[in-house]
Each structure stands twice: as structure tokens, then as C-alpha cells.
Write a protein that binds this DNA or RNA. Structure first.
Lengths: 279, 279
DNA sequence: CGTCGGGTTCGTACAACGTACGTACAGCGT
DNA sequence: ACGCTGTACGTACGTTGTACGAACCCGACG
């Protein structure tokens, strides 16, 4: 009955009827601890069990596979994404910003998490709540379901894209200042030689200096810039807002969403070029 | 001399002075073949060697570690990103679009590649060329180096974000139509039960149907929608374009010649978001 | 022609991983 | 006190990346 192998972990009752020494929560917490302090690759079943003072195989009584463990960890993180309902602004743009910033900050705290999260489409309860919360924002915009989903994934994809790049930078160096120091000498020499070859004029001139390594320093400072995310988010939301108001304008008669209440949108760009994608 | 362990692979001469049976190119090609046909996880040193009819450890004469092999694969893929110079439009927006679309298509072809690419900051020659080509576009915009980098990473992060989500979808299902079929029954039941519970009104109402599974179907069709990327890219470029023209306008007419000050006034608190509901 | 050097090949071995299998213990309902 | 069953886990297998060192082979030199 509960032995159905396709049953997701969220449907199976947690062990513990008799005196169980562990719980899924405790396991997930310990795993998150390891990942946060020593990196995701340090999370192995043996290591986790040893932290919990248990035999390795004991874990498999609470979890069917390591994938399921990762699912538990993921849902824990999704929980951090939740915004208390009374803190979610009424204005759609502010609300989306709040959600995106929170997503950014959470995944920045657990910079290993994007990798772990990949590949299990089973949303846990917290994942569902986060999804619901996102929809609660977009549902006020007068969009149909598909358009709402597209809007959410649009902002999400951008956010996770930035997070991933910064996670990569994190995995490589501690900070912008030490970025260049942590690059092996040989790599720097290689880069230097290529730039000096004259085949990369734009790379060479980028930092406005004659030291090619200044380009790398500049790169490091951009990768680690914590405000870059917000600036890009504003650009994206500008584009979305323009599209929304353009759309609601053309759809006259219907109850128009309070898309823009004279917010920072002052551009009204008429430049709507006929753009042929693809040639 | 060539025994320096920090020397990147691109600086070390390729073996083959005497009759060598392999070459880095052949190795990279075989590895890319495996990854494209059987998935990235099928690329193991043993498997690759067996495909090349060589002992496993032979590979280590051409490559110092598996990471280096991944570096070779990555640079091969970066080569596919290169746009013939005469095909790169003059208009910056069209050019950025071309680059982004190409990036999207390449990584869509090799949907495993983003994962492999992660974590080696050593740009190969093709990576350098791609970087140079991106800068060739942004260098016409009158931006300083940092702004150019930020623009490039902005578009890139969005692009790779979308690619990653679709790669996840790919890894899970074959197409939008079969998306829901490939979800285990138990997971569907779990989702269904949650939605029926009434705690997720926005998820329940999303597809405009009384079957909760229609929401999942809708999700699948959005994840697999190949045009979603372009639509989002237009929104992003709209926002960027508005910002650029706003900026150049203020730089032309304002008293302060500093371009970096005419920003939008939005931008709330720094880390502590805690937004009080307007009321 | 023989012999040597070093570029090339690769068999073996080891540590780490996820986890299947089978067993041993402990607590409850009878 | 018995037995059922939830809980614990020792052992073992297969897979991974790769360190080590021996074997091979080819071009060059005496």
C-alpha cells in the first residue's frame, strides 16, 4: 500500500510511530547545515549519517534515495522564499520585486542550492505555497493563465540566471578583491598573452588601461556586485510594465488593471521598431 | 617547465610529437557525441576511452583531469556561439538579439551543457572570441567598460536562465504533450489533493478549468514554449533601450556631465526589505 | 646494427560514492 | 511470554575519478 514506489515522499507518512530517533526535519536541517558550511559536495549519506550519530543505512528509513533527501532540502529552502502575506505590497511591481529580491537573497545565502534543486519536478508543500504566492500577485493584472505563468517564469529565469552566475563566482573566489588573486598564474599569463596578441581589441580596451589584468579585475567587480541584480530587474520590469500598459490600452473597454500609477515609468518610448527576429 | 601544475590546458602543447593515436580534438568530439546522444552523465573517463578504443588512463596523457576534458567540451560549444562577423547586424539591439538567440539555440541543442560548463573560469580561445564579439557590440554604445559588462551579463543571465529552465524540462519530459504523462501517478495525486484542499485558490483557478491537472498541462506548455524566450528578450531589451536613451538624454542636456547619476529614483532599502503595506 | 631515451600506453589499485540485501534489536498488542 | 513490526545498521557491490609505475615502441645516435 505505502510500498508504491511511485509515491512521492510528501504522500508517505513519516516514520516515527514507534520511537524513532530521527525525523525528516532533523535530517533536512542537518543536511542544510553541511551544505551551507562545507559546500554541497560535502553532503553524502555517510557524512550526514555520521553527523546525526546514526548508521548510514538508517537514513534510508526516512528517505528512499538521495534524490528525496535533496527534495527535502529544496523544500526547506522554498520555505525561506515565502513572504508573510501582510508584507506583500499591493502594487504588482513592488510585489514582484519583493518576491524576486527574496529569491535572490535566499539563493545567495545558499549558493550551492540551485545545483541541488535541479532535476526534481516534485514540488513540496513550500514550493506550492511559493507558486501560489506568485500567482496571487499576477492574478490582479487581468492576464490569462498562460500569460501569468509566462510573466512569473520570466522574472524567475532572470533572477535565477543572475544567482547562478554569482554562485559560480562564489564557488571560485571569496570576494571581488581576491578574485584575481585566486586565478592561477598560468591562466593569467594565458589571458595576458591572448590580449597582447592584438586579436581582442575590445577586451584589451575595456578597462581603459594598458594592463590586461585590469579587465579581469573589472570582471570580478561586476560578478560580485550585489546591486547588479536590482538594476537589471528594474530594466526587465520597465519592459514588462510598458508591455502591460500597451496591452491594456489596446484592449479598451475591459477593466484595466492598475498597471501603472505614475510610478517611475516615465519613458513612454514610441520607438517600437518593426523588428524581424531571425534575419 | 611544462610540468607546472597551474598551467592551463590551453598553454600546454598538445601531445603528439611522436606518433600519438589521439588528439584533444578527437577526444572532445567523442565526448560531445556521448553527451549529445546519451546525456552528460554518460560521459565517464572509462566510457570515453572505450569509445575511442583506448585504455582509460591513456586519456590522462591528453588531459590532466576530467575538469580539463569538460573545458575542452565547453570551448567546443563556445565555438558554436560565434557569429560570422559579416552576419552581425550594425544595430546594437539586433546584434544583441542575434547573439542571445544563438546562445539560446546552441544550449538548447546541448541541453546538458550548462551543467558541464559550470565551475571552470578558464575561458578557452573560443570563449575569448565570444566575449570579444559581445564587446564589439556594446562598444558602440558610449558606455564605459563596467556598463558594457553589466549589459552583456544582463542579457546573458536572462538567456541562460531560460535555457536552464528548459533544459530541466527537457531532462524530465520529451515534449509538452507528454509532460503530464511522464509525471508519476502519485505526484499527480498529491498535487490534485493539495489543489482540491482549497488552500491554493490561484493555482486552482489558473487554467480556468475545474480539473487541477489542466494547470500542470498549462505549465508544461509554457516550459516547452520555444517562443517564450524571444518574447521575454524583447521585454528586457525594451527596458534596456529605454534606459539607454534616458541616460544619453540626460547626459546631453543636463548640467552634470557624469552619466552615472541620472538613475531612476526607485530602489528601496538595501538588504532589509521589510516593506510596510501602504495604508 | 644495436642500444638507449623518453614519449606513449595502460593494468592495477584505492578512496569515495549511492544503495541493495539481509540481519539483529526493541517496543507494543495480545 | 510470544510474536509482529518498525527501526537500526554491517557488509558488500558496482561505479566513479585518478595516482602509480611498469611496459611498449619509435626515432636517433654510436
Amino acid at each position: 500500500m505505502s510500498a508504491d514506489p511511485s509515491e512521492p515522499i510528501w504522500n508517505r507518512p513519516e516514520p516515527g510511530a514507534r520511537g524513532a530517533s530521527l525525523s525528516r526535519d532533523k535530517i533536512a536541517e542537518a543536511a542544510l547545515n553541511i551544505a551551507d558550511t562545507e559546500g554541497f559536495e560535502a553532503v553524502s549519506m555517510r557524512r550526514l549519517a555520521s553527523d546525526l550519530d546514526v548508521g548510514t543505512m538508517t537514513l534510508y528509513h526516512y528517505v528512499r534515495s538521495k534524490r528525496e533527501l535533496l527534495g527535502l532540502m529544496e523544500d526547506g529552502i522554498m520555505g525561506e522564499l515565502l513572504v508573510p502575506d501582510d508584507e506583500l505590497p499591493d502594487d504588482w511591481r513592488e510585489a514582484l520585486t519583493e518576491l524576486a529580491v527574496r529569491t535572490y537573497e535566499v539563493f545567495r545565502r545558499h549558493s550551492w542550492a540551485l545545483q541541488a534543486l535541479r532535476g526534481n519536478e516534485e514540488n513540496g508543500p513550500n514550493g506550492m505555497r511559493h507558486f501560489e504566492q506568485s500567482l496571487a500577485v499576477t492574478s490582479r493584472l487581468g492576464l490569462d493563465g498562460r500569460e501569468q505563468l509566462e510573466l512569473i517564469t520570466l522574472v524567475d529565469d532572470y533572477t535565477l540566471g543572475v544567482v547562478q552566475r554569482q554562485a559560480d563566482a562564489d564557488a571560485f573566489a571569496d570576494a571581488a578583491e581576491t578574485f584575481i588573486e585566486q586565478i592561477p598564474d598560468g591562466v593569467l599569463e594565458y589571458f595576458d598573452a591572448l590580449v597582447e596578441s592584438g586579436e581582442f581589441p575590445n577586451i584589451a580596451g575595456l578597462a581603459g588601461s594598458d594592463d590586461p589584468l585590469d579587465t579581469i579585475r573589472l570582471l570580478g567587480s561586476v560578478f560580485f556586485d550585489e546591486n547588479r541584480f536590482r538594476r537589471g530587474l528594474e530594466r526587465l520590469l520597465d519592459g514588462i510594465e510598458a508591455d502591460l500598459s500597451r496591452r491594456s490600452r489596446s484592449r479598451r473597454g475591459a477593466r484595466s488593471p492598475r498597471a501603472s500609477q505614475g510610478r517611475s515609468q516615465r519613458q513612454g518610448s514610441g520607438r517600437r521598431a518593426a523588428r524581424t527576429p531571425r534575419g
